[in-house]
Design a protein around this nucleic acid. Sequence first.
DNA 1: CCAAACATGTAACGGGTTACATGATTAC
DNA 2: GTAATCATGTAACCCGTTACATGTTTGG
Lengths: 183, 183
Amino acid sequence: MSLPHAILTALLERPSSGLELTRRFDKSIGYFWSATHQQIYRELGKLEAEGHIRALPSEQPTRGQKKSYEVLPAGRAELARWTAASQDPKPHRDTLLLRLRAAAVVGTEGIEADLRHHLALHRRQLAEYEEIEQRDFPPGKGGPQDRLRHLVLRAGIDLETFWTQWLTHALEEFTELPDRDPA
Amino acid sequence: MSLPHAILTALLERPSSGLELTRRFDKSIGYFWSATHQQIYRELGKLEAEGHIRALPSEQPTRGQKKSYEVLPAGRAELARWTAASQDPKPHRDTLLLRLRAAAVVGTEGIEADLRHHLALHRRQLAEYEEIEQRDFPPGKGGPQDRLRHLVLRAGIDLETFWTQWLTHALEEFTELPDRDPA
DNA sequence: CCAAACATGTAACGGGTTACATGATTAC
DNA sequence: GTAATCATGTAACCCGTTACATGTTTGG
């Protein structure tokens, strides 16, 4: 139950239409909570029905017409409640690690190429994060809000750093593996 | 579409009943692919219907009676096919990071306690992984299969190390934050 | 006018989660 | 014999995914 709260956060940062939200989820928020436009429209409908947000009255709501939303006090209260409440971390699922485990049983065919593919993607993401850090968080300034946001970005950078290092190490192991590609 | 392949892998490592699988998912495999017993029974039914696994003939299948499964050649082939196929990494979702972003807007009430909670959990998980490493992967021995499994465990260890470090850093930032707990 | 891009949706499906149901075995 | 535990399942709900549908604005 996090998507509505992700949307509330985004709308508090700036009132937006469904498609604008989708675009913002493709960038900053989507780095740790992705969503498609179908999910977002569905959720906007629910949030409006619950009285947590409302459409800006300026535009009339016909299909194909842009419709922007803003957060109502009830929505802000719900977000504050959710943010303050303790939550157990969800177990994480990782297909690549699962495939490695499977490969230990049925063979490593095809894995090495995919490790390289993942490595390239993580390297690119890391570069993107570091660019954002240099642009948005110059050293030695920024209020408490900036420090929180920087902390989140830092997690992204460190995570991508971990993956690039681990994948590099994994590829080294692979090239040393005696019986790969028994052609 | 990974749960069936997780089950196939587990069953290839050792034929098991539904509840035994559930227990193994609570341990080793569940470290990167968790599943409840309901999911597992549902999936075992599908896999059997597709001819990928079969119930060991020894036991008759009444409710409440233990029923063990083994992988058929078709199941092994399917697992090999899935393992070799390239897959794009799924976007990851992290509630804690989302909450931090929300906290930048609606306040940090309650977050610090939860950071401590998460830190404790990640520290415990890290200790568990390191115990497993010392027990199962003594330095300087092991075949190719062991090296793959060690690689996977290594990812777990490094991930938990990252989280403990990041959470420690985050808590330091929090105690320096000027306007927290304005009592 | 027509095509492309913009913008908002609907429908169907599958997997994950939670709550509950039921039969068999074991311990007291 | 009955309570606890083991073991297998059913049912309902929500969320994420994919494919598709429909209307509007803009550019040529």
